[in-house]
């Protein structure tokens, strides 16, 4: 019994320790971000690796999610004789929820895990140590550009996901099933509000970008410098950031769309 309690206590303290370290690390990233913007080339390179390399998966997934929404939404709406509202359904679900959330989940598994693995391997092969010994701060030179690359890419990817999704919904609803094109777009435009829906969606994806990038660089930096350590850290990145995205989504949704 005492052993169990001691074990539990140890678990809790080690979690808290990690959380504290992660927060301190978060501040350090901001403190040493000067280099990322003074030498924009470093950050652009990371935008390429996280953003451009995720383009295909984000766009294809967005298209399919939108097409499924079109099919399912039509099936449900036409029972109530309001198939014209399909545009509203597809656009609102994508812009408010699915766009930011699904794009962030995909981003975590595509780019987040890659960032963790890369930083973890650099640590395991003493590249970070070597950098430190060359009087170059690895947080400024390696971590911060990757963090900002992710933060910049995420909102753009989420917007692309939503746009592709709406196009997918249009393809299925209007082109395939034959919902009236005019009412599809006009009802959508009459209901979707720029500030209320689109800006809030972009804010969400920005927050998710910060979460995924933070978790990814931290797990990489904190990884045990061994092969198992790095693979464990990569898994943890995907799991932790996915859970954090969904939890943060709930909080943000409650704050943004409460009672409006």
């Amino acid at each position: 019994m005492t052993k169990l309690l001691a074990n539990l206590g140890h678990q809790v303290t080690s979690r808290l320790w990690r959380l504290g370290f992660a927060s301190r690390f978060f501040l350090a990233i901001f403190l040493y971000s000067g280099t990322s913007f003074r030498r924009l080339q470093l950050t652009l390179r990371e935008v390429f690796f996280s953003g451009v390399m995720s383009l295909i998966i984000i766009m294809v997934s967005g298209l399919f999610v939108g097409m499924v929404l079109g099919l399912q939404g039509y099936d449900t709406l036409q029972r109530y004789g309001s198939a014209e509202a399909l545009g509203i359904l597809v656009a609102l679900s994508l812009v408010r929820e699915l766009g930011p959330v699904v794009a962030a989940l995909l981003f975590a598994s595509r780019a987040g895990s890659a960032i963790t693995a890369e930083i973890g391997l650099m640590k395991a092969t003493e590249q970070l140590s070597a950098m430190e010994m060359m009087a170059v701060n690895p947080i400024a030179r390696v971590v911060a550009p990757r963090f900002w690359g992710g933060v910049i890419s995420m909102p753009l990817l989420a917007a692309l996901f939503s746009a592709m999704g709406i196009f997918g919904g249009y393809l299925v609803g209007v082109v395939l099933i034959g919902v009236d094109e005019g009412s599809f777009w006009s009802q959508m435009q009459a209901t979707v509000d720029f500030r209320e829906d689109i800006v809030n969606g972009i804010i969400k994806s920005f927050v998710f970008g910060v979460i995924v990038s933070w978790v990814a660089v931290f797990e990489g930096y904190d990884a045990e410098p061994t092969a198992e350590g790095v693979s464990g850290a990569t898994t943890r990145t995907v799991v932790t950031s996915s859970l954090a995205i969904l939890a943060a989504d709930f909080v943000l949704t409650a704050l943004m769309f409460r009672g409006v």
Partner: peptide, 11 residues
């Protein structure tokens, strides 16, 4: 894509 959302999808 942001522009598309703002102009074509939103109001």
């Amino acid at each position: 894509a942001v522009l598309f959302l703002a102009l074509k999808v939103g109001n």
